[in-house]
């Protein structure tokens, strides 16, 4: 606020303020948070028809249910293991794992290609590792969709508000023409809550926590159990880990 008031007072700065505000918000290096999500694939495999997390997430975030069409919008969804980890596991192991469902969402990469390509900084990486989307600034060029190796981003090809079943009035809807994706429930984290999907999952297949907190459950689990990340060879360094 203070900075803004100052800008308004000085005339020249006022113009500058209109055109170039907050361009160079520097990213702090010394972070104390790194949110990660753990997906226990084996748990999901036992509840193959369970879509509770998806339903809960999409209802919470007013994600329109466009159906299985080409214009589908999804923040969290699942695919088969053999499709997701095609080359990571030897074919012989795929016999067992191949048909397992794998929960997918935005990986909130440490080195996110989508952030790099955005021409307006409408998507950027927060200090706590969340890759955020600013729907107010997105121009809908869909460069981020081309850059994302995980298909995590969806575009509002038209006005999808009518496809939102029960509107959650505590969360905004989206206009046509902008890209959207999973936000790691940053609005819930801010209130000290767990992400909706984690909270919803009764079989506790999903875990969420701060990796930089050595005492957190996620740190402990990751230390002990074998985990996979999607397309690790691309160097994106995802924050969604798949426990085998």
């Amino acid at each position: 606020m203070k900075r803004r008031d100052f800008l308004w007072i000085v005339g020249v700065s006022a113009i500058w303020g209109i055109f170039f505000p907050r361009v160079l918000a520097s990213q702090e290096k010394n972070r104390d948070k790194r949110w990660v999500m753990l997906v226990d694939v084996s748990v999901c495999a036992k509840n193959r028809d369970c879509e509770a997390c998806i339903k809960a997430c999409h209802e919470t975030h007013n994600v329109p249910n466009v159906g299985g069409s080409k214009e589908q919008i999804k923040w969290i969804w699942f695919s088969k293991f053999e499709k997701v980890f095609e080359t990571e596991i030897p074919p012989i192991a795929q016999k067992k794992l191949g048909s397992w469902p794998v929960i997918l969402m935005c990986n909130h990469c440490e080195n996110p290609p989508c952030v790099k390509v955005c021409p307006t900084s409408a998507t950027w990486k927060r200090k706590d590792g969340i890759v955020m989307m600013d729907y107010h600034r997105c121009i809908g060029c869909r460069y981020c969709m081309a850059a994302c190796p995980y298909g995590a981003r969806s575009f509002n090809w038209r006005d999808n508000k009518r496809y939102v079943g029960n509107v959650n009035y505590d969360f905004p809807l989206r206009n046509k023409g902008v890209v959207e994706k999973c936000n790691f429930c940053e609005e819930r984290i801010a209130k000290g809550l767990q992400p909706k999907c984690v909270e919803t999952c009764e079989s506790r297949a999903l875990k969420f926590g701060n990796l930089y907190d050595a005492d957190s459950s996620v740190s402990k689990v990751l230390k002990e159990r074998t985990s996979l990340v999607r397309k690790g060879y691309l160097g994106t360094n995802p924050n969604v880990f798949y426990l085998l």
Partner: peptide, 28 residues
Amino acid sequence: VWRDEVVRTGNRTYVREDGEKFEISLSG
């Protein structure tokens, strides 16, 4: 200002000049 505070900087608390705190939220 509130919008940018929440979306861009992740700050959800507004402190008035007299020190009273408010949650930054249109609906809330």
